[in-house]
Design a protein around this nucleic acid. Sequence first.
DNA 1: CATGGGATTGACT
DNA 2: GTCAATCCCATGC
Length: 198
Amino acid sequence: MTAALALDPQRQRFYARSVLEVARDLIGVTLRHGDTAGRIVEVEAYHECEPACHAYTGPTPRTEPLFGPPGRLYVYRSYGIHSLVNFVTNVEGVGAAVLIRALEPVAGLETMRRRRGVESDRELCSGPGKLTVALGIGLELNGARVDGGALQLDPPPGSRERPSLVADGRIGITKATDLPWRFCLSESRWLSRSAPTR
DNA sequence: CATGGGATTGACT
DNA sequence: GTCAATCCCATGC
């Protein structure tokens, strides 16, 4: 795996699709940062066409990365406290991204416990603000490439069989709550909240 | 320039 | 179940 591979057009094309497709295809992929890694088990899709999306009102200084090229990160500060990480999708000029909401910890659990200040494995990455702390992802990665830079994805997304998913409404928002754009790995015990059985 | 509001979490009743 | 922390920035006067 060379640095050049990170720029592989195939890799870029993965993110240059509908945010819903990308969201579903990210479930089951392992996200690595340094010596910590977790398997993505819960995500949410956001698109500029609906009011819960930060891109809804058009580009602003904060949301500029959302409108940038696909395959980049949009990291923002929530409630003045937490860093939340998104994968930018679609094409440049369209604001759409996948919020990473929960991981199953798979490597570097001691580092995660130290960063999070908790012992329970289930508490390490079971929320969008928790997992960024556990993996050491901060605002300095805003606009950085999703893969091939500080972060690595394994296996390369889209290269494997799809696991069984459950979809329901997004969490923690007040608008467009009816859209079933939250996707969870079926029967995962690592979610931020339990998903409906389907 | 002043104000209000979060794509959350953890502590507490 | 309730609620505060905390700050960037979008919005409106």
